[in-house]
Protein backbone atom coordinates (compact mmCIF):
# COMPACT_ATOMS: atom_id res chain seq x y z
CA UNK A 1 0.00 0.00 0.00
CA UNK A 2 2.68 2.46 1.05
CA UNK A 3 4.72 1.36 -1.91
CA UNK A 4 1.81 2.05 -4.21
CA UNK A 5 1.30 5.49 -2.70
CA UNK A 6 4.96 6.28 -3.09
CA UNK A 7 4.91 5.37 -6.76
CA UNK A 8 1.73 7.33 -7.35
CA UNK A 9 2.65 10.42 -5.36
CA UNK A 10 6.44 10.57 -5.23
CA UNK A 11 9.13 10.98 -7.83
CA UNK A 12 12.41 9.10 -7.60
CA UNK A 13 15.09 11.18 -5.90
CA UNK A 14 17.88 10.58 -8.35
CA UNK A 15 20.22 13.50 -7.74
CA UNK A 16 21.99 15.00 -4.75
CA UNK A 17 19.61 17.95 -4.84
CA UNK A 18 16.35 16.05 -5.06
CA UNK A 19 15.82 15.34 -1.39
CA UNK A 20 16.73 18.93 -0.48
CA UNK A 21 14.07 20.29 -2.84
CA UNK A 22 11.56 17.73 -1.62
CA UNK A 23 12.20 18.65 2.00
CA UNK A 24 11.21 22.25 1.45
CA UNK A 25 8.30 21.07 -0.69
CA UNK A 26 7.15 18.84 2.15
CA UNK A 27 7.57 21.59 4.71
CA UNK A 28 5.35 23.95 2.70
CA UNK A 29 2.95 21.11 1.95
CA UNK A 30 2.36 20.01 5.51
CA UNK A 31 2.26 23.46 7.08
CA UNK A 32 -0.22 24.44 4.36
CA UNK A 33 -2.31 21.34 4.82
CA UNK A 34 -2.52 21.91 8.56
CA UNK A 35 -3.50 25.55 8.25
CA UNK A 36 -5.92 24.77 5.43
CA UNK A 37 -7.63 22.03 7.40
CA UNK A 38 -7.81 24.44 10.33
CA UNK A 39 -9.47 27.16 8.24
CA UNK A 40 -11.93 24.76 6.63
CA UNK A 41 -12.74 23.15 9.95
CA UNK A 42 -13.39 26.57 11.46
CA UNK A 43 -15.69 27.46 8.61
CA UNK A 44 -17.65 24.23 8.85
CA UNK A 45 -18.01 24.80 12.57
CA UNK A 46 -19.43 28.26 11.89
CA UNK A 47 -21.77 26.90 9.24
CA UNK A 48 -23.23 24.40 11.67
CA UNK A 49 -23.14 26.49 14.81
CA UNK A 50 -24.47 29.69 13.28
CA UNK A 51 -26.83 28.38 10.61
CA UNK A 52 -29.96 30.40 10.10
CA UNK A 53 -32.20 27.72 11.62
CA UNK A 54 -30.28 28.07 14.82
CA UNK A 55 -29.61 31.78 15.02
CA UNK A 56 -32.48 34.11 14.07
CA UNK A 57 -31.60 36.84 11.62
CA UNK A 58 -32.10 39.60 14.12
CA UNK A 59 -30.01 37.99 16.83
CA UNK A 60 -26.53 38.15 15.32
CA UNK A 61 -23.62 39.73 17.11
CA UNK A 62 -22.34 43.18 16.31
CA UNK A 63 -18.62 42.80 15.70
CA UNK A 64 -16.78 45.13 13.35
CA UNK A 65 -13.28 43.76 13.62
CA UNK A 66 -10.36 43.13 15.90
CA UNK A 67 -7.14 44.83 14.91
CA UNK A 68 -4.91 42.88 17.29
CA UNK A 69 -6.17 39.61 15.88
CA UNK A 70 -5.59 40.76 12.31
CA UNK A 71 -2.11 41.91 13.23
CA UNK A 72 -1.20 38.60 14.80
CA UNK A 73 -2.47 36.70 11.77
CA UNK A 74 -0.34 38.94 9.59
CA UNK A 75 2.66 38.55 11.91
CA UNK A 76 2.56 34.75 12.09
CA UNK A 77 2.07 34.56 8.38
CA UNK A 78 4.95 36.87 7.67
CA UNK A 79 7.29 34.75 9.76
CA UNK A 80 6.13 31.60 8.01
CA UNK A 81 6.59 32.95 4.49
CA UNK A 82 9.97 34.40 5.38
CA UNK A 83 11.13 30.96 6.54
CA UNK A 84 9.97 29.56 3.21
CA UNK A 85 11.69 32.33 1.33
CA UNK A 86 14.94 31.83 3.25
CA UNK A 87 15.25 28.12 2.62
CA UNK A 88 14.09 28.52 -0.94
CA UNK A 89 16.93 30.96 -1.54
CA UNK A 90 19.59 28.97 0.33
CA UNK A 91 18.71 25.81 -1.56
CA UNK A 92 18.49 27.65 -4.83
CA UNK A 93 22.06 28.88 -4.47
CA UNK A 94 23.18 25.28 -4.14
CA UNK A 95 21.26 24.45 -7.30
CA UNK A 96 22.98 27.26 -9.14
CA UNK A 97 26.64 26.96 -8.21
CA UNK A 98 28.28 24.04 -9.96
CA UNK A 99 31.31 22.46 -8.22
CA UNK A 100 34.62 23.28 -9.88
CA UNK A 101 35.43 19.72 -10.88
CA UNK A 102 32.22 19.26 -12.88
CA UNK A 103 32.20 17.32 -16.10
CA UNK A 104 31.17 19.83 -18.74
CA UNK A 105 28.86 18.84 -21.57
CA UNK A 106 27.44 21.13 -24.21
CA UNK A 107 23.75 20.94 -25.01
CA UNK A 108 22.16 22.18 -28.18
CA UNK A 109 18.40 22.24 -28.23
CA UNK A 110 16.46 22.64 -31.42
CA UNK A 111 12.98 21.98 -32.67
CA UNK A 112 12.53 19.19 -31.56
CA UNK A 113 15.56 17.31 -30.41
CA UNK A 114 18.49 17.46 -28.07
CA UNK A 115 22.14 17.20 -29.00
CA UNK A 116 24.78 16.51 -26.40
CA UNK A 117 28.41 17.24 -27.21
CA UNK A 118 31.21 15.84 -25.09
CA UNK A 119 34.61 17.42 -24.80
CA UNK A 120 36.19 14.56 -26.75
CA UNK A 121 34.02 15.43 -29.71
CA UNK A 122 31.42 12.75 -29.47
CA UNK A 123 27.84 13.77 -30.03
CA UNK A 124 24.69 12.09 -28.90
CA UNK A 125 21.14 12.85 -29.94
CA UNK A 126 18.41 12.54 -27.34
CA UNK A 127 20.61 10.60 -24.99
CA UNK A 128 22.84 12.02 -22.30
CA UNK A 129 25.28 9.57 -20.78
CA UNK A 130 26.74 10.61 -17.42
CA UNK A 131 28.64 8.94 -14.60
CA UNK A 132 27.07 8.41 -11.22
CA UNK A 133 28.47 10.40 -8.30
CA UNK A 134 30.19 13.09 -10.30
CA UNK A 135 28.88 16.61 -10.83
CA UNK A 136 27.91 17.32 -14.41
CA UNK A 137 27.55 20.83 -15.75
CA UNK A 138 25.51 21.43 -18.88
CA UNK A 139 26.22 24.47 -20.99
CA UNK A 140 23.20 24.98 -23.12
CA UNK A 141 22.02 26.99 -26.07
CA UNK A 142 19.24 26.80 -28.61
CA UNK A 143 19.31 26.92 -32.37
CA UNK A 144 15.84 28.31 -32.84
CA UNK A 145 13.27 29.17 -30.16
CA UNK A 146 13.16 28.85 -26.38
CA UNK A 147 13.35 25.40 -24.84
CA UNK A 148 13.80 24.27 -21.28
CA UNK A 149 15.88 21.38 -20.01
CA UNK A 150 13.96 19.51 -17.33
CA UNK A 151 14.77 16.29 -15.51
CA UNK A 152 12.01 15.69 -12.96
CA UNK A 153 13.93 12.93 -11.18
CA UNK A 154 16.78 15.37 -10.57
CA UNK A 155 14.54 18.41 -9.75
CA UNK A 156 16.48 20.62 -12.14
CA UNK A 157 15.25 22.88 -14.88
CA UNK A 158 16.71 25.70 -16.95
CA UNK A 159 15.41 27.60 -19.95
CA UNK A 160 17.52 27.47 -23.09
CA UNK A 161 17.82 30.57 -25.20
CA UNK A 162 19.13 31.16 -28.71
CA UNK A 163 22.31 33.26 -28.91
CA UNK A 164 22.90 32.91 -25.16
CA UNK A 165 24.41 30.23 -22.97
CA UNK A 166 22.61 29.10 -19.87
CA UNK A 167 23.83 26.39 -17.56
CA UNK A 168 22.66 23.87 -15.05
CA UNK A 169 24.34 21.21 -12.96
CA UNK A 170 23.44 18.00 -11.19
CA UNK A 171 25.06 15.00 -9.62
CA UNK A 172 23.19 11.79 -10.35
CA UNK A 173 22.80 9.27 -7.55
CA UNK A 174 20.70 6.59 -9.22
CA UNK A 175 21.79 4.35 -12.05
CA UNK A 176 19.53 3.82 -15.01
CA UNK A 177 17.52 6.06 -17.30
CA UNK A 178 15.78 9.27 -16.31
CA UNK A 179 13.48 11.15 -18.68
CA UNK A 180 14.37 14.61 -19.99
CA UNK A 181 11.48 16.84 -21.01
CA UNK A 182 11.34 20.15 -22.78
CA UNK A 183 9.43 22.38 -20.38
CA UNK A 184 9.16 25.53 -22.49
CA UNK A 185 6.55 25.45 -25.21
CA UNK A 186 8.36 25.33 -28.55
CA UNK A 187 5.78 24.45 -31.17
CA UNK A 188 4.28 21.47 -32.89
CA UNK A 189 6.31 18.64 -31.36
CA UNK A 190 7.03 20.26 -27.99
CA UNK A 191 5.75 17.20 -26.14
CA UNK A 192 7.77 14.93 -28.43
CA UNK A 193 11.03 16.62 -27.58
CA UNK A 194 12.06 13.83 -25.27
CA UNK A 195 15.42 12.45 -24.28
CA UNK A 196 16.89 10.53 -21.42
CA UNK A 197 19.80 10.76 -19.04
CA UNK A 198 21.57 7.46 -18.80
CA UNK A 199 23.50 7.19 -15.54
CA UNK A 200 26.41 4.71 -15.56
CA UNK A 201 28.80 3.52 -12.87
CA UNK A 202 31.99 5.62 -13.15
CA UNK A 203 33.87 2.60 -14.49
CA UNK A 204 31.29 1.88 -17.12
CA UNK A 205 31.32 5.54 -18.05
CA UNK A 206 35.10 5.44 -18.52
CA UNK A 207 34.74 2.34 -20.66
CA UNK A 208 31.98 3.95 -22.66
CA UNK A 209 34.15 6.99 -23.25
CA UNK A 210 37.04 5.08 -24.77
CA UNK A 211 34.81 2.79 -26.78
CA UNK A 212 34.57 4.84 -29.92
CA UNK A 213 34.26 8.28 -31.25
CA UNK A 214 31.14 8.82 -33.25
CA UNK A 215 28.17 9.32 -30.95
CA UNK A 216 25.51 6.66 -31.04
CA UNK A 217 27.57 4.92 -33.66
CA UNK A 218 30.00 4.09 -30.91
CA UNK A 219 27.78 1.46 -29.43
CA UNK A 220 26.81 0.29 -32.87
CA UNK A 221 30.39 0.14 -34.09
CA UNK A 222 31.27 -1.89 -31.08
CA UNK A 223 28.57 -4.34 -31.87
CA UNK A 224 29.14 -4.22 -35.61
CA UNK A 225 31.09 -7.41 -35.37
CA UNK A 226 28.16 -8.95 -33.57
CA UNK A 227 26.26 -8.59 -36.85
CA UNK A 228 23.59 -6.02 -36.15
CA UNK A 229 21.29 -5.91 -39.14
CA UNK A 230 20.85 -2.52 -40.82
CA UNK A 231 17.17 -2.58 -39.93
CA UNK A 232 17.95 -3.02 -36.26
CA UNK A 233 20.49 -0.26 -36.42
CA UNK A 234 17.89 1.88 -38.18
CA UNK A 235 15.46 1.21 -35.41
CA UNK A 236 17.93 2.56 -32.86
CA UNK A 237 18.72 5.57 -35.00
CA UNK A 238 15.02 6.27 -35.41
CA UNK A 239 14.85 7.26 -31.76
CA UNK A 240 18.39 8.51 -31.17
CA UNK A 241 18.13 10.88 -34.12
CA UNK A 242 14.78 12.07 -32.89
CA UNK A 243 12.59 10.96 -35.79
CA UNK A 244 10.13 9.51 -33.29
CA UNK A 245 9.27 12.99 -32.01
CA UNK A 246 7.25 13.54 -35.16
CA UNK A 247 6.82 10.15 -36.85
CA UNK A 248 5.08 7.09 -35.48
CA UNK A 249 5.58 3.54 -36.65
CA UNK A 250 2.14 2.28 -35.65
CA UNK A 251 -0.16 4.21 -37.96
CA UNK A 252 -0.89 7.21 -35.72
CA UNK A 253 -0.54 10.60 -37.36
CA UNK A 254 1.73 12.90 -35.40
CA UNK A 255 3.41 16.09 -36.45
CA UNK A 256 4.63 14.13 -39.45
CA UNK A 257 3.18 11.14 -41.28
CA UNK A 258 3.43 7.65 -39.86
CA UNK A 259 5.83 5.19 -41.46
CA UNK A 260 3.55 2.25 -41.16
CA UNK A 261 2.76 0.87 -44.57
CA UNK A 262 4.39 3.76 -46.41
CA UNK A 263 7.36 2.28 -48.15
CA UNK A 264 6.61 1.07 -51.64
CA UNK A 265 3.33 2.95 -51.79
CA UNK A 266 2.35 6.27 -53.32
CA UNK A 267 1.96 9.47 -51.35
CA UNK A 268 0.24 12.63 -52.41
CA UNK A 269 2.24 15.84 -52.16
CA UNK A 270 1.04 19.31 -51.36
CA UNK A 271 0.91 20.30 -55.01
CA UNK A 272 -1.29 17.31 -55.79
CA UNK A 273 1.45 15.25 -57.47
CA UNK A 274 1.92 11.67 -56.45
CA UNK A 275 5.28 10.08 -55.80
CA UNK A 276 6.33 6.58 -54.94
CA UNK A 277 8.11 6.12 -51.63
CA UNK A 278 11.40 4.50 -52.53
CA UNK A 279 14.96 4.73 -51.24
CA UNK A 280 15.67 8.00 -53.02
CA UNK A 281 12.49 9.61 -51.87
CA UNK A 282 13.23 8.77 -48.25
CA UNK A 283 16.76 10.04 -48.61
CA UNK A 284 15.59 13.27 -50.13
CA UNK A 285 12.91 13.67 -47.44
CA UNK A 286 15.57 13.49 -44.77
CA UNK A 287 18.27 15.58 -46.41
CA UNK A 288 16.04 18.16 -48.06
CA UNK A 289 12.67 17.85 -46.39
CA UNK A 290 11.09 20.90 -47.99
CA UNK A 291 11.71 19.65 -51.53
CA UNK A 292 8.63 17.45 -51.46
CA UNK A 293 6.10 18.14 -48.75
CA UNK A 294 3.43 15.56 -48.02
CA UNK A 295 -0.13 16.77 -48.37
CA UNK A 296 -1.80 17.68 -45.10
CA UNK A 297 1.42 18.43 -43.23
CA UNK A 298 3.35 21.57 -42.42
CA UNK A 299 6.83 21.97 -43.94
CA UNK A 300 8.51 21.85 -40.54
CA UNK A 301 10.76 18.83 -40.71
CA UNK A 302 14.35 19.93 -40.04
CA UNK A 303 17.04 18.85 -42.45
CA UNK A 304 19.43 16.18 -41.28
CA UNK A 305 22.04 17.03 -43.86
CA UNK A 306 25.48 16.63 -42.33
CA UNK A 307 24.13 14.83 -39.31
CA UNK A 308 23.35 11.49 -40.82
CA UNK A 309 26.05 9.47 -42.54
CA UNK A 310 25.39 7.39 -45.64
CA UNK A 311 25.59 4.25 -43.59
CA UNK A 312 23.04 5.58 -41.13
CA UNK A 313 20.79 6.64 -43.97
CA UNK A 314 20.81 3.14 -45.39
CA UNK A 315 20.04 1.74 -41.97
CA UNK A 316 17.07 4.06 -41.56
CA UNK A 317 15.76 3.11 -44.97
CA UNK A 318 16.13 -0.54 -44.12
CA UNK A 319 14.15 0.03 -40.97
CA UNK A 320 11.38 1.96 -42.71
CA UNK A 321 11.12 -0.91 -45.20
CA UNK A 322 10.35 -3.34 -42.39
CA UNK A 323 7.38 -1.19 -41.41
CA UNK A 324 5.64 -1.93 -44.69
CA UNK A 325 2.56 -3.45 -43.18
CA UNK A 326 2.67 -4.74 -39.65
CA UNK A 327 2.89 -2.81 -36.41
CA UNK A 328 6.42 -3.01 -35.13
Amino acid sequence: MIGFLLITFRLPQASTMASMVDNLFDFILWTSVISFVGIVFGKLLFLVRFRRKKVPESKTAYITGHTAMEMSVAGILLVWVMVIFYFGWVDYKKLRVAPANSLEINVIAKQWLWEFQYSDGRRLTNELVVPKGRPVKLIMTSQDVLHSFFVPNFRVKQDIIPNTYTSLWFEATQLGEHPIYCAEYCGAAHSGMLAKVKVLEPDDFEAWQVEGSLGPMAALDATANAKVSPAEMGKTLFSTKGCNACHSVDGKTGVGPTFMGVFGHQVELQDGKKVAVDENYVRESVMDPQAKVVKGFQPIMPTFKGQITDEEMSALIAYIKTLKEAVQ
Binding site: V21, I84, F85, Y92
Partner: peptide, 9 residues
Protein backbone atom coordinates in the same frame (compact mmCIF):
# COMPACT_ATOMS: atom_id res chain seq x y z
CA UNK B 1 6.01 28.54 -6.61
CA UNK B 2 7.36 31.59 -4.82
CA UNK B 3 10.01 29.48 -3.06
CA UNK B 4 12.97 29.56 -5.44
CA UNK B 5 14.33 26.03 -5.19
CA UNK B 6 10.91 24.40 -5.31
CA UNK B 7 9.86 26.53 -8.27
CA UNK B 8 12.82 25.31 -10.28
CA UNK B 9 11.18 21.91 -10.23
Amino acid sequence: LAALSVDVH
